[in-house]
Design a protein around this nucleic acid. Structure first.
Lengths: 246, 246
DNA sequence: GCACGAATAAATATCGATATTATCAAGCGG
DNA sequence: CCGCTTGATAATATCGATATTTATTCGTGC
């Protein structure tokens, strides 16, 4: 259905995550310049390499990613719709600013949409979906949250599986549109999580929470599942708000 | 908050609606080529002048709107995120295809999101919001639905006020993100409505329905208001489905 | 000393041209 | 007679240059 090459893609772009300016311009066809720049910029914004509010000068990006102006501008236009980049009237682009207020709104909206998606999934999900939930839960549980138990060091594989897990829960909702929105909001949320500086991560047992959610879902206990999922989000949210200096 | 010059704008672009190829390239500054092309293309897609599935050839559009390739491509990229245009891998762009299935999904999702937005608005809306609701209701009621009572002829002013009316109902939901999504889905819906060919419009008294919805809202009767709004949409939806040859 | 304004410098928006890539049809071989 | 390869054609994706627009700086006048 969504065969758009440049549209949403996993924010965690696979094994070979490259620094900006790596890989100047390999001849590997199959991916357009635009979509390459799009994903790299997206990654750099989500991971915080490009800070909120930062000016995105075309000429600078042109040199950084080693492409012409067109792919840069096109990628920025795309990111504009993802709310990762803001276009300022006739003064170019900048990274969307981040604030505690924006985050609060994001979190709230995300809970609303995911609640609906989860309810629909529980009501209509097939047995195949159940199996996917089980698998995603298991796979996520097999990867540690952080490299070190004390100070937090992100693990890319965890990020990847975590997103797959949460999207799988919603995947049977019957609306690719809603799913797309949830996907967007998920990525927005990851950005805030990484921005908050993940040093000293909360002591909650996140894996246990995931397990409970999955159990409620598989028991088709709609109310419990929604309650657990929402508090899963709001708990993390409260913590992030503190880091953001609410 | 959203000072993005090129982002969402009213799908009904004011009094002087221009045909594509009007107004070749006037010197009127203040609006970038990109945003001009964006709104025109958007209008032409919503109103059906550009048909679903139609190939959007750059060179053709370049001549039609009398601009270079960059603004065209940028506008198309923007429209891609609005789901009005699809990008086909390395083969350019085309108008997003329309189908009864897609419409059903759209309608369903729209009901979900608007339900949430309406509930929040009713719970948190201020007295100022109430007044806006009253005003929007009144203004909509002052314009006839069609030029002629028999065969349907669209009235631009009605379209405009109708959108304002429905968005006003949701405007106190407390989430600009959710509001943006509802706005997008509204425009998508208008496209389907116009595509369905509005000849022979249903005999329902749409104005009365709007009045009832507003009354329920002002009485802060959440359940009733939601029920009325949703059936308002699903009724129209059923009718459109028939036209689409469901 | 400070505000205003013109000239300079930076950066954007846009254009037209070029290099790539996909499409289509005709010719060749099976 | 049909499928495959190969070339011609059309269209895209991308580039580098130019024209505008915005930001900044340096004088000048008050």
């Amino acid at each position: 259905m969504d065969n758009d090459a440049t549209s949403k893609r996993q924010s965690l772009s696979g094994p070979e995550q490259r620094q900006a300016s790596d890989l100047p311009n390999d001849g590997s066809r199959s991916e357009s310049m635009t979509s390459r720049v799009y994903s790299q910029l997206r990654d750099d914004i989500i991971t915080g390499k490009l800070m909120p509010g930062q000016k995105l000068k075309i000429e600078e990006l042109r040199r950084l990613y080693d492409v012409g102006t067109s792919p840069i501008r096109e990628a920025l236009s795309l990111l504009t719709s993802d709310h990762f980049v803001e276009r300022i009237d006739q003064r170019g682009f900048r990274v969307t600013r981040a604030s505690a207020e924006e985050f609060a709104e994001l979190l709230k909206t995300r809970c609303w949409l995911e609640e609906r998606a989860l309810r629909e999934s529980i009501q209509h999900g097939s047995s195949n979906w159940e199996e996917q939930v089980i698998l995603a839960t298991y796979r996520l549980s097999r990867v540690p949250r952080s490299e070190s138990p004390d100070n937090f060091v992100a693990i890319e594989e965890w990020e990847k599986r975590h997103k797959i897990y949460h999207m799988t829960l919603l995947s049977a909702c019957g609306s690719s549109i809603l799913l797309k929105y949830c996907d967007q909001l998920y990525d927005q949320n990851v950005r805030y999580r990484l921005l908050a500086g993940s040093t000293a991560y909360p002591k909650r047992d996140v894996n246990a929470e995931h397990g409970e959610i999955s159990d409620a879902i598989l028991a088709r206990d709609e109310e419990l599942a929604v309650k657990l999922l929402v508090s899963h989000y709001t708990n993390t949210g409260k913590f992030l708000q503190e880091c953001l200096g609410d």
